[in-house]
């Protein structure tokens, strides 16, 4: 046990995800030895992120204003919406530079065993966005695991009758891997979604 404030800092750091008691101690001593200006910058960043960041009123992504940068960008195609589970997924898709439409963040996936049902996600907000008829395609980009698939099935069943084009991200073999290590489900999916080679 250290004295007073040092121990308080170690305890607070130890509450962060993935930080154990030893790592917390190491970070605390790093902070103690750092220049005051660096520490102040860190403290300010922590305070600002809590004060300024909120969730976009339209898509649910993290934002600094009423709407996020993507929803405010008029160059983006408003007729295509990509549905994802978390704000982290928006960043992952943005890195590909393949998608020029808008997003909708659900805030999780349907998982009854964990007590998460359709009403706990931002599905009502999604339906409200689709109501005015300007959206023509909905891309379901929930995680390719069981809960993500179930959420996609639920959304597709609900939205298809509205006459929209509903698509699901392809799943199959990862680029750069060996075929023999692929599991049966993934390999089966890759077969299902095979495409014609235009050579």
């Amino acid at each position: 046990m250290y004295e007073g404030v040092v121990q308080d800092l170690i305890d607070e750091l130890g509450r962060l995800p993935g930080v154990g008691p030893k790592s917390a101690q190491r970070i605390a001593f790093h902070i103690l030895q750092a220049e005051p200006v660096d520490v102040r910058r860190l403290a300010q960043a922590l305070m600002e992120v809590k004060a300024k960041v909120r969730f976009c009123a339209t898509c649910g992504n993290v934002a600094q204003e009423e709407q996020c940068n993507i929803c405010r960008d008029t160059r983006r195609d408003p007729s295509v919406i990509c549905v994802v589970e978390e704000p982290k997924d928006v960043v992952a898709i943005e890195r590909t530079r393949e998608f020029r439409g808008r997003y909708h963040v659900l805030g999780g996936a349907i998982s009854p065993i964990d007590g998460v049902g359709p009403d706990d996600l931002r599905i009502r907000e999604l339906l409200a966005r689709l109501a005015d008829g300007s959206v023509t395609e909905l891309i379901l980009a929930t995680d390719p695991n069981l809960e993500g698939e179930a959420t996609a099935t639920y959304l597709a069943r609900m939205i298809k009758p509205m006459g929209l084009k509903v698509t699901r991200l392809a799943s199959g073999l990862p680029v750069g891997g060996d075929l023999e290590y692929a599991d049966e489900v993934t390999l089966g999916r890759a077969f299902e979604g095979r495409r014609l080679l235009d050579v």
Partner: peptide, 11 residues
Amino acid sequence: TKSKFGARLEP
């Protein structure tokens, strides 16, 4: 994504 388990250990 490149885990050797792939989708084998899903519920």
